[in-house]
Write a protein that binds this DNA or RNA. Structure first.
Lengths: 215, 215
DNA sequence: TTGCGGACCGACCGTCCGGTCAGTACCATC
DNA sequence: GATGGTACTGACCGGACGGTCGGTCCGCAA
């Protein structure tokens, strides 16, 4: 009795769950790859989660690596937002950067799985899979950010001694590190921002703009 | 013809290479685990690199996971330095933190493999293996750092509005992010510190102490 | 009505993995 | 010289993995 729906009801001939099989496979792969990483996830597990047979996975994607690349590509595509906040309005550098930092961090947390997938690929120094793919996404965004900061500097909104590229790295790094380590920070004493990203952004911008020294 | 030395000369009966077999296994495991991660490394590969048989690995360690834990434990032990710089002298907060940041970053880079191993365990959100082990190391150091910063603040060396725990996170995050992403930063334009950690530390401390805003 | 192609399946394959085991060489100590 | 412990080995095991294969079902166009 082949072709029996392994999932709930849905009497129709085809497309038994939601979306066609390929989409369900991609969604399942995103979930699993993002949480456990490439090696820890078997094609069988993906097929089970998607409610299809393993053979069907190989019908849509020519290899496990191919599926991973497709998943990563989609994750990259969906993560290209939150940068528009920057190019929007003019005005005070503090306001602009504050809004960017806040939105960027919230966007990372909102698309947690996609972010985790891309970050894993970028930060793991192994040449494997498609670091270049994820790296390009990173690079594009980074250059835009540097451009905006440099523009602000030329308008006299930043001190002259400041290196725009370094500031961009600092901003990115602060958010990436928060994303990575917020879980363990929750176990640390004296930290009130582990579950409140906005408070983190606020404190960061205060230090960034004013420094920690006494006036 | 068993017991033939698979490595160079060393006529002696025992200890054919350097150190006993167990040490060689640990060293090989550190190398491979740090670079490729737990899953990507087979016990066979470790045994080959150490110049022993796979069975011998299981003679010294009761499982692959046990070997991983031993490796991680040693990596944690060897990484407990560079914090003494803090508790040393008194004096200007700028000097103290600058020296700490510099030394901490250089220590991470000096012990690259150990750092990578511990960091992988801490930052990967999977509950697996021995996150607690690495986390404790992190936590200890973090608390010391917070203590020093708080002390500086009570002496009036820091602005009152500053949260010491946040500053500690910021310092740690900046160095961790540099360690993780310096390789891809080398491919980015306009970055002059990707291969010069001391320049990175310098720029960071400038921003941290003085902020980026115009005076 | 036929036939074609895509979605899909169960069963299967070779490989490699973590782990075991029986046995060997080489020490100690008595 | 027997004994016992330790470092070490090749051969082997069950299982999981990525991937293949022959075949079924079904919508659709001729």
């Amino acid at each position: 009795m082949p072709h029996t729906a392994t999932v709930t009801a849905l009497s129709d001939h085809h497309a038994r769950n939601e979306g066609d099989g390929m989409q369900r496979i991609l969604a399942a792969a995103l979930d699993l790859f993002a949480i456990h990483g490439f090696d820890q996830v078997s094609v069988n597990a993906i097929a089970d989660k998607a409610g299809v047979s393993k053979a069907n996975v190989f019908h849509h994607f020519k290899s496990k690596n191919d599926l991973y690349l497709a998943t990563l590509r989609e994750a990259c595509r969906e993560t290209r937002e939150s940068l528009d906040v920057l190019s929007g309005t003019d005005g005070d550098i503090g306001e602009r950067l504050t809004r960017y930092m806040r939105e960027h961090l919230l966007a990372m947390l909102r698309n947690e799985q996609e972010t985790r997938l891309v970050l894993r690929e970028v930060l793991d120094n192994s040449p494997g899979k498609a670091r270049a793919l994820a790296e390009d996404v990173f690079k594009d965004r980074f250059e835009i950010l540097v451009g905006v900061i440099r523009e602000c500097q030329s308008k006299g909104l930043l001190r002259d001694g400041i290196d725009p590229a370094f500031v961009a790295v600092m901003l990115t790094g602060a958010n990436v590190f928060y994303f990575q380590s917020r879980e363990i920070m929750r176990h640390f004493p004296g930290i009130d921002f582990a579950t409140e990203p906005e408070r983190y952004s606020e404190k960061f911008m205060d230090v960034l703009l004013n420094g920690i020294g006494v006036k």
